[in-house]
Design a protein around this nucleic acid. Structure first.
Lengths: 349, 349
DNA sequence: CTGAAAGCGCTTACAG
DNA sequence: CTGAAAGCGCTTACAG
């Protein structure tokens, strides 16, 4: 394609590092130093080069840079979380942080039960020479995956409800605090017969949320009857099942806390199938604050996690070295879950 | 790093095209021909090279290939759709098709109202030298964006409710068929006073769904009273508003069809705020079949679009040239929306 | 502080 | 059908 390509609508050929070097009358190596923020460039040289970069609208080609660096400018989001809201919010948060950095986000759902999980992740990370990887639960809790990333020398940040790793590669979500708020809320409303529907053991969040809830409850002098303790699967269906189990008891609970919203809404379904009126006959509190929580009737009281912020914080940790800061020292606020009070939990009769 | 790097846990250096060429005793150009499925390679040469590729576990480096090709192996998903379920399902569908192709999916949410929309998309597409772009509504309906992609010579596939482009770059979702099914369902149930809550004009789907619904309704001899015709915004809140407006009429409708589920659930909220019992006092049908539809009470009857399939089909069109087929001739099933009958619509009193 | 040379791992354009 | 040379747009390693 000639310089003066006459094809209509064609944009001019993109400026390269050579163009910048020629116009600024320096070597391309010096331009490269400017791009990479090397301190070994005289101030006036740097300014001249930057002016030319701006005038030519030059942006370095990520492919060429990646080839030379032996590392791409792609961040992988590896996840197995089944909640679309969670996933999309997290992507959004990561993208918030990536804006202007020149990095892009590549999504990579996976299946922890797949026998080819590790092989699959290895291929992805190695082939793309990823700049880094972000993982929400439950992949973030898979030590085999972590070991693999270490072997591949791939930087990563894990998002999880407890500190599973060093601070530089962890965003801890403090789920226990949110669960404690739920406990105190139900206690404040005067409930004494309180049921708990847990998630599967595979998820650390289930243990962490349970502990936060139960500790707060016992601090208020309220015990959990073993017949009120139900293990669900974090699914709507398991919530329905839990609802029927708990509500068919001789002395059913007056309130139920479920460790996620899908199960809370399952409880609602079961209650209605049994002819109960909500919230009069049963108070319910969930965890996640899905958009659905504000849409079901009665509007669901639920614990909200700042998922978008969590994604942003994770990405910022990954970018820290590039910005010359130590990820471990990065000043980031703590993740604070918060109870969103709506109408599904009311004072005990 | 030496060949015999003794660091524990380190993997061997990846094989390159040079390694393959050396072992197979051919030039790297011939290896390149094999990789790129060139017909100008003798059968036995090809087999020998393929054997070595397999033995060495060689996969071509996408960055190097991209640099030489002046085109990356990344597919961009550019979207402004606000529904997380829609977005995640579409991503999943695209990834289904990309599996094994060596391409990766880069997500790029955007805001059609942003003054920098075009500039932003231009930077993304140009900098990453995208292999292609997939767009669901409503970006897919933005002709300025399409003009830009043409200018940049970037292949694209648009997903939309009507054919806005040539077949090779369109997946048409036939929303009208689904809306017609909804109309027939309500007519079958004996409803005569039927309300319609539309979406915003910005979305073609609103016009297409409305037309499908109204045509089917009038074929059954049922007119739409103008006071039963409400323009919503595809949001829950606008559904609540529509519900109050329609239900406060002197002769309120006995059934309402909303052009998406969020608004349908808003109608439910309004009905309850007015003390109505559902579905006894009002039948409701939505569109989208969000996961929420099966979770609200009464479970919402809704039109389902095969979103994951749509994403897969779009990606297959983009991959067609690489696979040596003509995207326009690609044998793909039509997208068929289907009514999912649940409990929110019952026979008219 | 700056630069000329070589290289990252592939493909295009040209020969044969 | 196959290959040697040059190049894609950057960076590393080495000089100075």
């Amino acid at each position: 394609m000639a310089q003066d390509d006459p094809r209509p609508g064609k944009t001019a050929k993109r400026a390269t590092i050579n163009d910048v070097a020629r116009v600024a009358e320096v070597s391309k190596k010096t331009v490269s130093r400017v791009i990479n923020q090397s301190p070994f460039v005289r101030q006036d040289t740097r300014e001249r080069v930057n002016a030319v970069i701006k005038a030519l609208g030059f942006t370095p080609d990520p492919q060429a840079r990646g080839l030379a660096f032996r590392r791409s400018f792609l961040i992988g989001l590896i996840y197995d979380n089944p909640s679309p809201t969670y996933v999309v919010n997290m992507q959004q948060g990561v993208l918030d942080a990536l804006k202007g950095s020149g990095l892009e986000l590549v999504v990579h759902p996976c299946n922890r039960n797949s026998p080819t999980l590790l092989e699959d992740i290895r291929g992805f990370v190695e082939r793309q020479r990823l700049y880094g990887v972000i993982m929400p639960p439950s992949v973030s809790e898979d030590e085999a995956v972590i070991a693999l990333l270490r072997e591949l020398d791939c930087p990563y940040v894990r998002i999880a409800s407890v500190a599973l790793d060093e601070p530089a590669s962890m965003v801890v979500t403090n789920d226990g605090i949110g669960a404690a708020e739920a406990a105190n809320h139900l206690a404040d409303l005067g409930h004494l017969r309180i049921g708990l529907v847990r998630g599967p053991d595979l998820f650390r969040s289930s243990a962490v949320r349970s502990k936060g809830f139960l500790d707060a409850l016992s601090a208020r002098g309220i015990p959990l009857a073993s017949e009120y303790d139900f293990k669900g699967a974090y699914t709507f269906e398991s919530g329905v099942e839990a609802g029927h189990a708990l509500l068919s008891l001789a002395h059913p609970p007056s309130a139920i806390f479920t460790l996620n919203d899908d199960m809370a809404i399952g409880i609602m379904q079961a209650a209605r199938e049994r002819g109960l009126e909500l919230p009069r006959d049963l108070s319910i509190v969930g965890f996640d604050d899905l958009p659905m929580a504000a849409r079901v009737w009665p509007n669901l009281t639920s614990v909200r996690l700042p998922i978008r912020d969590m994604g942003r914080m994770a990405a910022e940790k990954l970018l820290a070295p590039m910005r010359g800061v130590d990820a471990a020292q990065l000043k980031q606020p703590e993740v604070r879950p918060a109870l969103v009070v709506r109408k599904s939990a009311i004072p005990a009769a």
